[in-house]
């Protein structure tokens, strides 16, 4: 029997969705990890997220910037943080569709990857934030040099506010060299005339897949 979601959990989930959407994230509720993989591959293919030429490369650029653009040859999904089994499932789906699936070597893909696929360690309802503990550089790069970031958030990992994570953060910070990211919405700037513009250095879109307790 599936556990009954408490009132508190419902309100956390709803608040998380509301705040994440307010920060321009695309939020979808799903019921299995498999659904998340299907969503990602579908996004890459059918919905046209994966392109050989990444955004910005169509502009008039300096020569070194053009050269970097030209180093991209595949439609790429990167998913460095997954367990072997899940990665295997994703890689198989990518294979079927002719997409490259990577879990390492992202430094060689600085022209850009199309989709970074990750699973968050926690979600923060107050601000609609993803928490990713990412001391490994592949995971960091997958969320930074991608055009689209797709992140699975398990409903039971959502907490009310950042203070509820204090002990976990402290444990991570003390565990050795650490790198942890709070991510809220896509990369943005308002540095030109205060006009909100999405996708400066990081992802142009953030897709959150909310995985329920089913």
């Amino acid at each position: 029997m599936a556990p009954i979601e408490t009132e508190l959990a419902v309100s956390l989930r709803e608040r998380f969705m509301e705040k994440a959407r307010a920060a321009a994230a695309v939020v979808t509720e799903i019921s299995s990890l498999d659904e998340a993989l299907a969503y990602t591959v579908d996004m890459c293919g059918t919905r046209g997220a994966c392109r050989l030429k990444v955004s910005g490369c169509e502009e008039h650029l300096s020569e070194p910037a053009e050269q970097l653009c030209e180093t991209k040859h595949d439609k790429i999904i990167a998913a460095p943080g997954l367990d072997e089994h899940t990665y295997g499932l994703l890689a198989a789906r990518c294979n079927e569709n002719g997409f490259a699936c990577l879990s390492s070597g992202l430094r060689g893909q600085l022209a850009g990857i199309d989709i970074g696929f990750t699973i968050a360690d926690a979600g923060i309802a107050e601000t609609g934030t993803l928490v990713l503990n990412c001391p490994g550089e592949e995971l960091r790069l997958a969320t930074m040099i991608c055009e689209y970031h797709v992140c699975v958030v398990k409903v039971q990992t959502i907490v009310a506010d950042s203070f509820a994570l204090t002990d976990r953060l402290r444990a991570w910070f003390k565990s050795g060299p650490d790198y942890t990211a709070f991510i809220t919405g896509p990369s943005r700037t308002a540095d030109i005339e205060r006009v909100l513009t999405i996708g400066v250095h990081g992802p142009l879109e953030l897709h959150i897949l909310l995985l329920g307790d089913v």
């Binding site: 001391p135 550089e137 060299p177 990211a181 709070f182 809220t184 990369s187």
Partner: peptide, 24 residues
């Protein structure tokens, strides 16, 4: 803004493929 898009917490010589011993 309720929070910025990124809050980054850094402590220590993290993994870095091009660093000495693979560390930053």
């Amino acid at each position: 803004q309720p929070i910025t898009s990124y809050v980054t917490w850094i402590g220590g010589a993290n993994e870095c493929a091009v660093g000495e011993d693979g560390k930053k």
